[in-house]
């Protein structure tokens, strides 16, 4: 149970998730709004319906993650 292995590394990455996610609250809200709009409207949710919003969120998240590594 000592040293680093794939489990400790991936757990360490997951531990940083909330911090990184908080840096992208604007993009997250935009994506969330896009998806939740389908639960009330006529528009049905399908794959990649909010692809654009998700790409923005992911780009922001990945950038934030890279910033943290340095």
């Amino acid at each position: 149970m000592s040293g680093t292995n794939v489990w400790t590394r991936s757990r360490e990455r997951m531990r940083r998730f909330p911090e990184l996610f908080a840096q992208c609250s604007g993009e997250a809200a935009a994506y969330g709004k896009c998806v939740t709009a389908t639960t009330t409207g006529i528009q049905e949710l399908r794959k990649d319906l909010c692809g654009k919003e998700f790409d923005a969120l992911k780009t922001c998240f990945v950038t934030a993650a890279k910033k943290g590594v340095k």
Binding site: F17, S25, A28, A29, Y31, G32, T36, T39, L57, F61
Partner: peptide
């Protein structure tokens, strides 16, 4: 991992 990110955003928003 994409789904986790998406779910986090939806949970927060909803």
């Amino acid at each position: 991992r994409d789904t986790i990110l998406a779910a986090a955003a939806i949970y927060q928003e909803m």
